[in-house]
Amino acid sequence: MLHTVNKSPFEKNSLHSCLRLSKPGANILLLEDGVYGALKGSDISEDIEASLADRGVYVLGPDLKARGIHDDRLIDGVQVVDYAGFVKLAVDAPRVQSWL
């Protein structure tokens, strides 16, 4: 299953709920203001690091670039995808849940 989060984790609890309620094996894609959740060394980065043990975490490249975040600032293990990669994640998943 693919979960998408497009809100900043520092402003809304969408990412928090997604991490809490997603299952091992799921993929999580951060996009729009959700990409801030992939920053290394933030107040919430430990939550993402923990979830990487049994879930895939992806982040949308164009949204990172728009926000001035280079790949070297991301939590280790988070993978950057482009729009085609986003589509592939969605197509490969039996279901997509958006955490708005």
Binding site: Y36, G61, A66, G68
Partner: peptide, 14 residues
């Protein structure tokens, strides 16, 4: 989150 407004290297071309 307002501090993100001043982040350098923002590039919205994509």
């Amino acid at each position: 989150d307002g501090v993100f407004q001043l982040k350098k290297d923002q590039d919205t071309s994509d």
